[in-house]
Write a protein that binds this DNA or RNA. Structure first.
Lengths: 244, 244
DNA sequence: TCAATGCAAGTGTGATCACAAATCAAATAA
DNA sequence: TTATTTGATTTGTGATCACACTTGCATTGA
């Protein structure tokens, strides 16, 4: 044996590291991605390279590359000052995002409805139970877990659509709407009960029946909810701000 | 006056440089983008950072950031070797790309058909004439100009859809299908006459009549053409390769 | 008191260096 | 001849530095 490092000719070592070793850059990128989809950054928040580099325990190099990538995905915004921030929420942008999500995620779920295997359907059915578990201990509203579970449910379906082109686009859309969604979910939690499980149940039922149109409609209802809620909230604020 | 450089308080200088100064990184990124959409790189071609840096007369730094951005857009592909290449053409990927383009560009043109101003319609009408000009000197097939003109025509329409979310997605799709399209156009030129102008005329007619459905159908026919052509060519090659 | 000036800290950008991994070619062994 | 190995070159990655620009605050002037 020549080296102690992974050797592709060694089947065991190849299994331990079958793909290219993860780079710091990718780690940082995925970390920021997760934070954005989860809404951990607030809209209009400014991010600095050195600040993130310190927080992520690395140098500025991987961070600036990750930021550049997120800017091209419109997940972040490059200001003329050359500083970068989380895009602010506007009514126009929300409508725009929702329309695109209905169009593309609707298509993806319609495709998935005709292609999901019984095994995959069982998987998303089992996810419904987790919502019930969470409701059982509703005294503690765990927004993080809600976001994670919701994301896992949707992407389990989208992955089944079998399109290597649509899925990254959906990820980009979630990246862009992440900050808005988080704001909406917080507002939801204040306003009343979270009935996401009901919508997801409808989706699963349609998929199990291979009802593409029904699945699309149920999905549209599901993803529209936080947007319409947030929209009415923003309109109320705008009216109040205008009257003052 | 303190400095010889641009000063925002000086209205004249501000007009000369109204937005943020262009960075080398952006220049490189736009350059590579243009090359990809225009199909100047071949499918499966490997790109190296230092090679591009030399070609673009800059250091490796702006190039690696630009490559990273193009990889996140799926315009380029990161191999496990950590090298990057133009994604190869496969039948599945082509069908996937075409479906996504029909979905999203179809929606964009339907929106644009109801929103384009007479002035904008005049602009795309005038573009039709350029095809006739080009046909007049058809002895010299100028693929570059065909690609540029086609792109200008389509994006003049898409810009009118008024969606800041859909347009970048369409750009991403063009970026991904650029290499395929170029191959198809070359095959077209060999096969016979280019009748792009006819399809564009149909599109303009539908838009002028504010016929959203007609515009969408005409667009679908237009963008499907190179894909179906290339598909039959690839299938023929695959069959030949299989028999050998 | 208030506006303008000037300085200092912070920030993004591009270049360069060090290092590890991959690639390729020549040389060696079977 | 063919397969393996060894060494040199190339390549991507991460860190660091230098520079220009921005920002914020204190100082200065009227």
């Amino acid at each position: 044996m020549q080296k102690a490092t992974a050797d592709k000719s060694d089947p065991i070592a190849a299994q331990l590291a079958p793909v290219g070793r993860e780079t710091v850059q990718d780690r940082v990128y995925l970390e920021l991605r997760r934070a954005l989809i989860g809404g951990l950054f607030e809209p209009s928040q400014v991010l600095t390279i050195r600040g993130l580099a310190d927080a992520l325990m690395t140098s500025t190099m991987p961070v600036r590359e990750a930021l550049g990538r997120l800017i091209t995905e419109k997940a972040l915004e490059a200001l003329p000052n050359r500083s970068v921030r989380v895009p602010p929420i506007t009514l126009e942008r929300m409508d725009d995002l929702l329309r695109a999500r209905i169009l593309i995620e609707g298509e993806a779920i319609a495709l998935a409805a005709t292609r999901m295997t019984p095994r995959q359907i069982t998987t998303i059915e089992s996810m419904l139970g987790e919502w019930d578990e969470m409701r059982a201990l509703k005294h503690k509203k765990d927004v993080d877990r809600e976001v994670t579970l919701n994301q896992a449910f949707h992407f389990e379906i989208y992955r089944a659509c079998g399109s290597a082109v649509l899925i990254p686009m959906i990820e980009s859309l979630w990246l862009q709407s992440g900050p808005c969604i988080r704001v909406a979910i917080y507002a939801f939690s204040d306003a009343g009960e979270v009935d996401t499980a009901h919508y997801h149940r409808t989706i699963v039922k349609a998929i199990a029946a291979q009802d593409a149109k029904g699945a699309r409609d149920a999905l549209i209802a599901d993803i529209s909810r936080p947007f319409t809620f947030l929209r009415s909230k923003l309109e109320a604020e705008a009216k109040k701000g205008q009257s003052v």
